[in-house]
Design a protein around this nucleic acid. Structure first.
Lengths: 251, 251
DNA sequence: CACAATATGTGCGATATATGAACAAATGTC
DNA sequence: GACATTTGTTCATATATCGCACATATTGTG
C-alpha cells in the first residue's frame, strides 16, 4: 500500500473513539490528546467532528459518546454471518444445560464475544457481544490460541500482560504453552476460577466446513454447583454436539 | 464550530463503516462508493485505511469488517454507565417473569438496545446490545417518543418510513400521535404483534433522579401464552418496580 | 484575590488529502 | 472471442488538514 492510500485523519479519529472506555466515559480535549498521543488541536477537531455527526455530545467541557456509536460495531455484528448462525444454537444449548453459553473470536490478545445466551448471572462482570477478555485465561481464548501455530501463540502471549486475576490464574508463558498443547490434543479447554473466583468454564473450537477454526463456544458455570472436574463430563458432549452441527453451516 | 474544526476524512471513514450492514457484509470498492456517495478513489483510501488498521480484511476484491470494529461500539457500552447499572435489574426481572427483558435508548427514529436479558427466544430476529428497531412500532420506542415534546415526536415520525411489518402495525401518523398521548397519560406502552406476529411487548420509561426520561425498559412475550390484554396486568408492576428502584441510581 | 497551573481556542506555513479525469484491468454479454 | 461495461488504479493539482506557537480562558491554591 502506498502512503497516499492511507487517510490519517480517519485513523486518528478512530483512535479518539477508542480513547473512551470503562474508566473514562467523559473526556475533555486534553484527556483525549493525552490518551491518544495526538496533538491537542487534532484531538479537538476529531471530537468536534464526532459531536457534529451526532456520535458524541459536548457540553462545552466534556465529550460523551452517544448510542449512535453503536452503529459502527453493529455494522460488524449484523454484517457478519457467524453471530447470526451461532446464536440460536447457543440459545438451545444454554436452555438445555441451564448455564450461560457464548461464542467468541480472537482479536489480538483478547477474545471478543460475538454471541451469548445468558442464564442467571454468575460473573461479576457483565458479558455481552463486543465484550473482551484476555485470551490467556479464558476458556475460549485457550481454545483459539491452541488452534493457531505454536510460534504465533507464543508471540501473542509475549505481547500479553499476563496478570493474576485470582490465585489460580496461570501466568507463566511456558506453563501456558504446555496447557495449549494439552488443549490442542484433547480438543477442549477448562478454566477453573482463573479469571474470577467461583467461576468455571469449558470451551471447544468451532470449525468451518473446511476444518479451519473460526470461533470458540463455551459454557460457564458456578464452581460451587459444578466443580471443575465435572465440567467436561457434563458439558463436553453438548458443546461438541453443537460444534458438529455447526461445522457444515460455517464457511 | 468553524469549518476547519471538521475532519471530513474522519467523517467519510465513518460513513464507509456504516455502509456495511446485514445485507451487505462483503463490499467491493465500487459498492462502498455507491452506498456512501463518495468518490471511488476516496472510498478506496478509506477502505485501505481500515484494512491497514486491522478493522477490515481485504482479499483483493472484497472488504469485510473484522471483530476489531466492535471496539468502537464497545467504547460506548463500557463507557456509558447506564447499560451497566440496568443490566442486573434486567437479569432479575427476566428471571422472575420468565420472559426477555431489555433496555433501550433513542437514536434518531430508532430504538437502540443497550442491555438485554433474554429468556428463550420468541422473536425471529436476534436482539442484542446495539440492535435497532424502528421506534414507532416498538413498545420502548412508543414510550421514548411519548416522553419528548409533541412536535419533536411528530417531526421524528415524519422522518420515519412508516411501513407495516404485520397487518396490525399502526402506520398512520395521526393515530400514532394519539397513541403517544395515551402512553404519556398511562405511563406505559403495549405493542400487540405490530412488529412481528406472535409477539407482544410492554414498556415503561426509565427516569433519572431529576425526572428526565433517559431510557425505556420492556418485557416481550409470545402472544400465544400471554395475550396483549394481559400484558399490563402481569408485567406492568414488575416493570414499574424496576423503574422505581433505578430512579435514584440514574443521573 | 492574585498567582500559578492547566486547559482550551486560533492563525499560519508546511504538509497531506480529495478530486475527477484518464488509463488499465477485469468482468459480463452476446 | 470481441465488445461493452464495470471496476480498480494512478496522477496532477486544488484544497483541506496538521502541528506548532501563541493567545485566551478556566481552575485550583495559598
Amino acid at each position: 500500500m502506498r502512503e497516499t492510500d492511507f487517510v490519517s485523519g480517519f485513523a486518528r479519529g478512530l483512535k479518539v473513539i477508542e480513547a473512551f472506555g470503562e474508566t473514562t466515559p467523559r473526556l475533555a480535549i486534553a484527556d483525549v490528546a493525552k490518551a491518544t498521543g495526538l496533538d491537542r488541536a487534532t484531538a479537538r477537531r476529531c471530537l468536534l467532528t464526532l459531536a457534529e455527526l451526532g456520535y458524541a455530545d459536548y457540553d462545552g467541557k466534556f465529550f460523551v459518546l452517544t448510542p449512535k456509536i453503536l452503529r459502527l460495531g453493529h455494522a460488524y455484528l449484523s454484517a457478519t454471518p457467524l453471530p447470526h448462525i451461532v446464536q440460536p444454537f447457543l440459545d438451545k444449548l444454554a436452555e438445555e444445560v441451564h448455564q450461560s453459553a457464548s461464542a467468541s473470536v480472537l482479536d489480538g490478545t483478547e477474545v471478543v464475544y460475538i454471541a451469548r445466551a445468558s442464564q442467571k448471572r454468575v460473573m461479576s462482570i457483565n458479558l455481552m457481544p463486543g465484550s473482551r477478555l484476555p485470551a490467556y485465561c479464558a476458556s475460549m481464548g485457550r481454545v483459539l490460541l491452541a488452534a493457531m501455530p505454536e510460534d504465533e501463540a507464543r508471540a501473542l502471549l509475549k505481547q500479553t500482560n499476563l496478570r493474576s486475576f485470582t490465585p489460580r490464574t496461570l501466568t507463566d508463558p511456558a506453563g501456558l504453552m504446555e496447557e495449549l498443547a494439552r488443549v490442542r490434543e484433547e480438543g477442549f479447554a477448562v478454566i477453573d476460577q482463573e479469571l474470577e473466583l467461583g467461576l468455571c468454564s469449558i470451551a471447544v473450537p468451532l470449525e468451518n466446513d473446511r476444518g479451519r477454526v473460526v470461533a470458540a463456544i463455551n459454557i460457564g458455570a458456578p464452581a460451587a454447583s459444578v466443580p471443575a472436574a465435572e465440567m467436561a463430563e457434563r458439558y463436553l458432549e453438548p458443546l461438541k454436539g453443537v460444534a458438529r452441527l455447526l461445522k457444515s453451516l460455517l464457511r
